[in-house]
């Protein structure tokens, strides 16, 4: 294989350039305090605050003036926002405000779960592939094969196979992201492997699993964390696209993607149905991306934007 593609990590939706791998986590000086840290990292501050608010919505969805998000009432369907229904009602009379608030749960869950699952599997495979030469070839060919199938098509195909459930949505999206994580981890392991302290550990007789766990794993976590935030952001968008295509979460689940997919046909006459979940989704994805950018700047000083 050529050296060129590995010079640059892969990009899925929102999985953006982290051109060079940072070496280790920078020192965190406690004395500067949280406020000082946030002041120096405004993106983390803004993104993190928004995310915390959303997390609050997700956890306390039932206490925020909501009603049962699944209660239908065909006789008062597709009503515009009013004092009774803050965001209006959808095509079968469900309260949109409640659905959007409960939808925070689903979208955050999908985003975080995909990031966790994809990073976990990708990390495991990537570490092994990077360290064991005989595994590397076959595994990476399979990864190349998986990666050459456009992620959304792969996810749609996987969803067509399985029964619609949020768990399956998570798995379908995550599988498409695994090869990208795997390549990132592998390339970072490959460069770490040549570093003197790893070589030293190996020569000193440490077993391979031990070297991986003690030395390599911690050093891969930094780029992986950055990558995971981007996966999280892109997963939320992909969830919406799957719903759009008709291969997403089960429709009784009030996910933002589902609300948009159900309301999208009416965007000309009832724009509010699609607008509220779309804006919520954008803000969330924006927050996660900001957080990701902030983390990257923090963990990879070379491409940081310090004036």
């Amino acid at each position: 294989m050529s050296a060129a593609p590995d010079r640059f990590p892969d990009s899925a939706v929102g999985v953006i350039a982290a051109p060079e791998m940072p070496d280790i986590l920078p020192e965190f000086t406690p004395r500067a305090g949280v406020i000082g840290f946030l002041r120096r990292n405004p993106r983390i501050a803004v993104g993190g605050t928004i995310l915390l608010l959303l997390l609050f919505c997700a956890v306390f969805a039932g206490y925020l003036g909501t009603v049962d998000p699944a209660a239908i009432a065909p006789s008062r369907r597709a009503r515009p926002p009013s004092s009774e229904h803050w965001f209006g009602t959808d095509m079968i009379g469900r309260d949109l405000y409640s659905r959007v608030v409960y939808g925070t749960r689903v979208s955050l869950f999908v985003g975080f779960a995909v990031a966790l699952v994809a990073s976990g599997i990708g990390l495991a495979i990537g570490l092994v592939a990077g360290f064991l030469k005989w595994v590397d070839g076959p595994v990476m060919r399979v990864m190349d094969g998986l990666m050459s199938i456009p992620p959304i098509l792969l996810a749609v195909a996987l969803m067509a196979l399985t029964r619609g459930s949020v768990g399956n949505v998570v798995i379908a999206i995550a599988i498409a992201d695994v090869p990208r994580v795997c390549r990132l981890v592998r390339s970072s392991v490959l460069s770490l492997r040549e570093l003197p302290f790893i070589e030293g550990a190996v020569t000193a007789g440490s077993s391979t699993p031990r070297v991986i766990l003690r030395h390599v794993l911690p050093n891969t976590l930094a780029p992986l964390t950055v990558q995971a935030t981007y996966i999280c952001a892109s997963a939320m968008i992909t969830e919406a696209i799957l719903s759009f295509i008709g291969a997403g979460s089960p429709p009784d689940v009030p996910s933002w993607g589902n609300i948009m997919a159900e309301g999208r046909m009416l965007w000309q006459v009832k724009p509010f149905i699609i607008a509220f979940p779309a804006v919520s989704l954008s803000i969330t994805v924006l927050a996660v991306n900001l957080l990701g950018d902030g983390l990257r700047d923090l963990l990879d000083p070379r491409s940081a934007t310090k004036a």
Partner: peptide, 16 residues
């Protein structure tokens, strides 16, 4: 079926 609007609308009512 989710991709059939008539069937889907009836289904939502039936589930409820």
């Amino acid at each position: 079926a989710q991709n059939q609007s008539i069937v889907k609308a009836m289904g939502d009512v039936t589930i409820d």
